[in-house]
Design a protein around this nucleic acid. Sequence first.
DNA 1: AGCTTGATAAACACTT
DNA 2: AAAGTGTTTATCAAGC
Length: 688
Amino acid sequence: MMVESASETIRSAPSSQNGVGSLSGQADGSGGGGATGTTASGTGRDVTTGTDSNGEMSPAELLHFQQQQALQVARQFLLQQASGLSSPGNNDSKQSASAVQVPVSVAMMSPQMLTPQQMQQILSPPQLQALLQQQQALMLQQLQEYYKKQQEQLHLQLLTQQQAGKPQPKEALGNKQLAFQQQLLQMQQLQQQHLLNLQRQGLVSLQPSQASGPLQTLPQASPVSPTAAVCPTDLPQLWKGEGAPGQPAEDSVKQEGLDLTGTAATATSFAAPPKVSPSLSHHTLPNGQPTVLTSRRDSSSHEETPGSHPLYGHGECKWPGCETLCEDLGQFIKHLNTEHALDDRSTAQCRVQMQVVQQLEIQLAKESERLQAMMAHLHMRPSEPKPFSQPLNPVPDSSSFSKVTVSAADSFPDGLVHPPTSAAAPVTPLRPPGLGSASLHGGGPARRRSSDKFCSPISSELAQNHEFYKNADVRPPFTYASLIRQAILETPDRQLTLNEIYNWFTRMFAYFRRNTATWKNAVRHNLSLHKCFVRVENVKGAVWTVDEREYQKRRPPKMTGSPTLVKNMISGLSYGALNASYQAALAESSFPLLNSPGMLNPGSTSSLLPLSHDDVGAPLEPLSSNGSSSPPRLSPPQYSHQVQVKEEPAEAEEDRQPGPSLGAPNPSASGPPEDRDLEEELPGEELS
DNA sequence: AGCTTGATAAACACTT
DNA sequence: AAAGTGTTTATCAAGC
C-alpha cells in the first residue's frame, strides 16, 4: 500500500497539462528538469581517500559511497566522539552499509510514467536539481570509468615500455611518464570538478555535523510531498542554466563544473577539501592500489557487490522498482541507460529516494543528538554535541530557517537561493513543495492537487522558499485558497482587502505578476466560494478574514480518523517516500523529528504526522465531516470564535475577530493538541 | 461511475 | 461610464 500511495502522488501531479492551465499561461516549462541537488548526500571526504587508486573501485562506487557516507558520517562522528577516537580514516564498512539501507523506500515507488510536466509539478525546483545531479553523478561515474580505463591503458603502456623496451631513451620514457601524469592530473581534476559540483549542489557534501542539520528541517511532514523535498533554492541555478526539464544533466554538469566558485568552496570546505586529487595521483601512478580503497569498496559493495555499480548488485538492477536481471555490468549499464534515463519516471524515483535519504538523515541526526545528550549526561563526553546539535537547533523555528536559507542564498550572486551547502541544506531539502513543477506546466489543475493537498504547511514552505517563489516564475504549489489564507494570516490583524491580497500575491510570487486577470478572478472566486473566507465590512471598505475553522473543515474529512487513511496520506505526501517502516521507526524512536521545524507546536506529538494543518491539517480533528457550517460542535476551541461569519458577516463581530484568529477568546484553555497544531500553522509569522 | 475539489472562464450585480 | 469588487454558474481535470 504504501507503495501505491506514493506512486499515486507522483502520478497525480503531472498529468494535467493540457491546456487547462491557463493560469499562467504556462509558465512554462522550462524550469524543469533539473535536478537538484539537494539530496543530500554525502560527504566528500571519503572521496579523497579512496578513490581511485584501485582500479577496482569504480567511480560509481565512489559516488555511491559518498552518498552513503552522508549518513555514515554522522554516525561515525558520534561513535568517534563517544569512544574518543578521532581517526576518521577508518570507516567501517558495516556502518556504511547500515546507513544506507534506503532502498526500502524506493521499493515503495512503483515506476510510473510521468510526463516532464508532471515531474516538474511533483518536484520542487531543488528536487529537480537534485535529480539532475543524480544524473550527473551517473555520468560522472561513466566518465570516471572511462578515465580509469585510460589510466590503466597508460599504465600498461608504461609498464610495457619499461619492461620490454628499455631501448627507449630515458628522456622518452620520462616524457611519457610525464604525459601520463599529466593525463592523470587531468583526470583527477575532472573528477574533482565533478565532485565539487556535486558537493556544491549538495549531492555529495554533507559534513558529518551538518548532515544532521537537515534533519530538523523536515517540516512537518507536510504533505507537500513530492515537491517538498528539495529546496527551491537550488533550483534557481538550475533553472537558469537549464530550461527544459528534460535536458541532459550533462549540460548542467558542464556549466557547474566550470564555475565552482564560492559555492563550491563552501561545500568543499566541509567535505574534504583536499579531495581526491592528491591521493589519486599517488595511487594511480604506480600500480599501487591503496588499501584504503579496498576497505571502502567492501563497505559499499555490501549490497552492490562486485559489479561495482551502486545500482547493480546480485545480478540485478537495483533501481527502485526495477530488479531487472543483468548478467554483467555492461548489460546493466545498457539497461541503466535505456530504462533509467533522465525521464519523468526516473526523476520521480530519484526524488523519492532523496526524500528517503533525507528522512533517514534527519532521523540519524536526531538520534545522534539524543545519543550525545545521553552520553553527556553520563559523563562520557562533556563537550561533544556541537556538531550535530548545531544544525539541529536552528530548526525549531521556521522563521529562523527561512532566514538561514535566505542568507545562504544571498551569498550567491544570482540572488536566488542555492542549495544550502551545509547549514541551509537541511532546511530546504525537504520542503519545497512540488512547486517546481509549477514552472513546468504552468498551471494546470494538477498543480493544485499535488501541491496543496500534499504540501501543507504552506507557511513554512513559503518561509523557506520565499525567495525562490519571489524570483522564479514558478507557480506555487498551493491552492488559491491556501495562498489567500496565508496572505491574510500573515498580517497582524489577519485581514486584508482584496487589493491587498492581490498585492501579496504579486509581491510573494513572481508567477502572479502576469496573467493578472486570470488569477485575480480566481482569487475573487475563491474568496466568495469558500466559507472560510469571510468578508468584513470595515470603515475603509471591506476586508477579508479567514475562518480557520471553516478552512480546516474543508480539508479531507477522510483523514480524520482512520489510521489507514492517515497512513495513505502520509505516503502520498511528499514524504510519502518514506515508507511505513521508516515511519514506524521514527515513531518508535523519536518521531518528533518529523515535526521539526515548522511546527512549533509543543504538543504536537499527537499529530502523527506532521501533516500539517494546512491542508491536511485537520486530520485528526473531529471536525471533519460535517461540511456544513453547522454549529461548532466539537469545535476546537480556538476557532470557535470565527465560526459562522460567513453567513452573517456581522461587521462588528468580524472586526474583532480578525486579529486573533488564533488568540481567540476561547475559554478552553486546553485545546486539544490537534488544535494546537492547527493554530501553529496559522501564525503567519512563519512566513517571514 | 459518481462525487468532491480546485482551477478557470465568464456573466452579472453592486459599489465607488 | 468605467473600474473594481463580489457572487454565481459552468466546465474541465484530477483524485478518491
